[in-house]
């Protein structure tokens, strides 16, 4: 049987569907609990609803990027795996890398040699085993990290904020650096996205323009893309 027939078979769809159902279930119970607790600790419904709305708007751009990654995965590992893997634990870059390591280990170069059943199965195994490290470490450490954070900062709220923002600046500083030193159109996209945000964010804050706060990132995202195309 051709590997894509197996990859796109009903049992594979069911296995992928079960995992995705679990993700949705978790998101649902966490929203319910967080919304109720948010009200109790003094967040207004307006705050929480506009947070959720802005998150929806912000999700659209990156989801388009993920969707194009889906196309690449779809042709190599079939619909169910592509659908499941991009909703579950991994990310496009990781999945493509894992899939190609998996097939190469049985002597099949992805995109060059014809895929065999065993190569496909090894890609599946590699995607699974390569990604559960994240979920295992995060699950074991989540409740402990809260205590570590309290201990390190000794409840100093100013310090907690400094550490939070420093961690994010470090993460995104390293993510953006790769594009900055590339000195190609990605560099332009990164600089333009940053520049648009630099203009819009203070503008929205100073004049308290709510819609602009919600849309600023989406505008910067696509604006940066258009500037990079124009060059």
């Amino acid at each position: 049987m051709d590997y894509l027939q197996i990859a796109n078979s009903v049992p594979m769809w069911l296995a992928a569907g079960a995992a995705i159902f679990l993700v949705l279930f978790q998101a649902f119970i966490f929203v319910k609990k967080s919304y109720a607790t948010g009200k109790e600790i003094g967040l207004t419904e307006d705050q929480m609803k506009s947070a959720m709305k802005s998150s929806f708007i912000t999700s659209l751009g990156p989801s388009v990027v993920i969707l194009t990654g889906l196309l690449t995965l779809l042709v190599t590992v079939g619909g169910p795996m592509a659908w499941m893997r991009l909703s579950f634990i991994g990310s496009v870059m990781f999945e493509l890398m894992a899939a190609s390591f998996g097939t190469e280990a049985v002597g099949v170069k992805m995109g060059i040699d014809p895929m065999t059943n065993v190569a496909f199965a090894n890609a599946v195994w590699t995607m699974i085993l390569g990604s559960i490290g994240w979920i295992i470490f995060a699950t074991l450490s989540a409740s402990k990290m809260d205590k570590v954070q309290q201990k390190v900062s000794k409840g100093d709220k100013g310090l907690i904020k400094v550490i939070s923002v420093a961690a994010m600046l470090g993460s995104f500083g390293s993510l953006v650096s790769g594009h900055l030193v590339a000195l190609n159109n990605n560099t332009i996209a990164a600089l333009a996205g940053g520049a648009i945000m630099l203009a819009l964010s203070p503008l929205a804050d100073k004049n308290n323009i709510k819609w602009l706060k919600e849309w600023a990132l989406a505008i910067a995202l696509f604006g940066g893309m258009f500037v990079a195309i124009a060059f």
């Binding site: 990156p62 194009t68 600046l169 953006v176 990164a190 940053g194 203070p202």
Partner: peptide
């Protein structure tokens, strides 16, 4: 063109956090 969305996103997010702590 969609490939430019990711660097653009990283640039914009970096600036968003940069505005919270300019000296860092």
């Amino acid at each position: 063109a969609f490939n430019f969305l990711l660097p653009s996103l990283f640039g914009a997010i970096f600036v968003q956090f940069a505005l919270m702590k300019l000296n860092i």
